[in-house]
Design a protein around this nucleic acid. Sequence first.
DNA 1: GACCCGTGGAG
DNA 2: TCTCCAAGGGT
Length: 362
Amino acid sequence: MAKKGNEAPGKGFSEQLLRWDREQNRRQMPWKGEKDPYKIWLSEIILQQTRVEHGVSYYNEFVRNFPDIKKLANASEEKIFKLWEGLGYYSRCRNLIATARSIALERNGVFPKTYEEIVTLKGVGPYTAAAISSFAFNLPYAVVDGNVFRVLARIFGIDTPTDSTEGKKYFAQLANELIDKKKAGAYNQAIMDFGAMICKPVPHCDQCVFNKSCYALLNKKINELPVKEKKISIKKRWFYYLLIEHNNQLAIRQRTAKDIWQQLYEFPMIENTQDLEQDGILARAEKQNWFIRGKYEVVTQSPVYKQQLSHQLIAGKFIHIRVKNKPAQADWQWVNETGLGKFAFPRVINQFLQKAREQSLF
DNA sequence: GACCCGTGGAG
DNA sequence: TCTCCAAGGGT
């Protein structure tokens, strides 16, 4: 099944990689060379499935606000989520908070020093545990991320799908054979830098130190490797947000369901599996006693704002409504425009708010 | 093992 | 416009 191509790992791989790192790698990042496991952990959580350029400013702000893990553990969830706002994958933020608090309370703020302990932390899997272990403590655990899949698949000609169980196991084993155990941190950093700078999705083979031996280059399979097998299906959802205004304040609520954007805030929202006319939206809102027929006015309705998620396409519409009587919904908070700034919202809402402010609708 | 979870840049 | 996917992990 799995064609392994150029099988012999080649003793020279890690030596060549580390030489490239010493002589040609100019990549700089705020956390590079960092030895504080807290900051390494923080950077790794932020960077999961996230481009370095996107994560850098978030990392700097987190370090500025929370220089050590106890500061983070003692901060309010509201504040931490506000700093995370816009990064996506908000379960990372929830796990970040849980882990910070458990280390602060149960370990007096001292970060664990073994791979086995580190990998048990919430939000820390094999990749992140290997990264922290090797960067902070120089322990010999090879990282396997998207860069490593790409580099190894191409150089050694491995077409086992990276998103299969067999593939994950095979790449992890190969990576742990290749790693220079005495320079684990440097090796792990080097292979990821190499994947990000040279062996990119569209690679710079002319600058590659492996271009005399790379399986993919020699066999014209650059665009075929690595292999991924699963395709995702996109579900479409319609979100009708109601900007319910009373006494210059708007109602917001926190999302608590096991769904996208859990723990972020939103305006009271009617969801539908297909497009819905304004009358239908208002009827459903009335049925939930959000406002009473005849006792409100519709101020405006926005155009459609679309947001593409990894598995869903959200179509959001915003209907501004002024009510005469203040609805009594237990899970609503009433905030003025300034107050909105304290809460973390999904992108689609922030895009609307930005546009609304530009047009001074508030 | 299959599916879910955000956002933005590149080509 | 559309597809891919990026320092993955949880359920």
